[in-house]
């Protein structure tokens, strides 16, 4: 690791200024992803701006929303009464991610910003368009068992590794951003991007912009929820497939539903067509099967991840069944 300059930001403005002026600078909070990437030489910022002393740790209810500061720790959010009661899907997703120690370090903002765990991205001797644009995608013809089945391009087939983000995209969260040009509020769905021709860019954030928090609009999804994560071991592993499912059921009829998947795309993958299909239908395994089929439209597998085409719909059905307490 190169020896970088360390700056501690005591105000939001100073933090943003520091990055706006210097393309080689990066924010650090929990460090669980950035320090890892720096150790591997994937990124080598010359200046690190420590934002952990900014007052962005609150978890609070405001009319119409729950607002979570970007520096709130993953563990704090997961265990917070407000979140457990109002957004249990988020609690479940957070607890499915990483380890207790990492959740004590990782922040909400950092979790959103975390980069893919694609092995070709991590190994600086391998080609990777995300790391070195134009060098090629190592995974495309390589070991792509963990890789995308939706929305990939031949430039990049990596997946976004977060569990938290799968819940947030399902819950229609907004990302609150502050930057040199002022503040903006980005729909979660629009925050992460698909690789297209520019695999290097994970999201729509501009240089110098800082995530200050997220807002989750009030919703009725507190009873019928499930976050299903299928992985190679029982805990502390990235998802092969994960599914966030939550239903608003009245008299056995689905009033509303949210579905999103992890481990399948360059971004947390919302399933709008399947949701639309389910709305107004009576709860049954049959319609869940139908929804899963719809959800898989447009999926495409590679040499080592064809199993996901089978596992993903199975996971959707299973997660919906558990959420609907259909067993």
């Amino acid at each position: 690791m190169i020896n970088f300059q360390y700056l501690r930001a005591d105000t939001q403005k100073k933090a943003i200024d520091a990055l706006a002026k210097d393309a080689s600078a990066q924010f650090i909070a929990g460090g669980t992803n950035l320090v890892d990437l720096m150790k591997k030489g994937v990124t080598s910022p010359q200046r690190i701006v420590d934002i952990t002393h900014l007052p962005l740790k609150q978890i609070e209810k405001v009319p119409g929303y729950t607002r979570i500061g970007s520096l709130a720790l993953n563990s704090e959010v997961a265990e917070h009464e407000l979140i457990k009661n109002n957004h249990p899907l988020l609690s479940l997703a957070l607890q499915a991610g990483a380890s207790p120690q990492l959740r004590n370090m990782a922040t909400v903002g950092g979790n959103i910003m975390q980069r893919t765990r694609c092995t070709y991205f991590y190994d600086t001797e391998m080609p990777c368009n995300k790391r070195i644009p134009g060098s090629g995608c190592g995974a495309l013809q390589g070991y792509n068992r963990m890789h995308a089945i939706f929305g990939a391009s031949d430039k990049c087939i990596a997946v976004h590794p977060s569990d938290m983000c799968v819940a947030l995209v399902a819950l229609d969260a907004k990302v609150l951003v502050s930057g040199p040009k002022g503040n903006r509020r980005i729909e979660f769905e629009d925050f992460h991007r698909l690789p297209g021709n520019d695999a290097a860019k994970d999201n729509v954030l501009q240089q110098g912009e800082l995530i200050t928090g997220i807002e989750i609009p009030d919703h009725p999804f507190t009873k019928n929820i499930h976050y299903l994560k299928i992985r190679d071991r029982a805990s502390y592993a990235f998802a092969l497939i994960s599914v966030a499912a939550t239903l608003d059921i009245q008299n056995n009829v689905i009033q509303d539903v949210r579905l999103a998947m992890g481990g399948v795309a360059h971004k947390p993958w919302r399933l709008p067509a399947a949701e639309e299909f389910l709305k107004g239908k009576k709860v049954s395994e049959e319609i869940f099967r139908e929804a899963a089929k719809i959800a898989m439209n447009g999926s495409k597998a590679y040499e080592h991840n064809a199993f996901k085409l089978k596992m993903a719909p199975a996971a959707i059905i299973e997660s919906l069944k558990i959420a609907a307490k259909l067993d």
């Binding site: 765990r117 092995t119 070709y120 991590y122 190994d123 001797e125 391998m126 190592g138 013809q141 390589g142 070991y143 190679d232 071991r233 029982a234 805990s235 502390y236 592993a237 990235f238």
Partner: peptide, 25 residues
Amino acid sequence: GVVDNRYGRWVNNNFADYHVPVNAD
């Protein structure tokens, strides 16, 4: 243990990708 045979290079040489049992297993 997985080697990418195009490069003769390991692709899961870490504890996140080479899984060994954890307590929950």
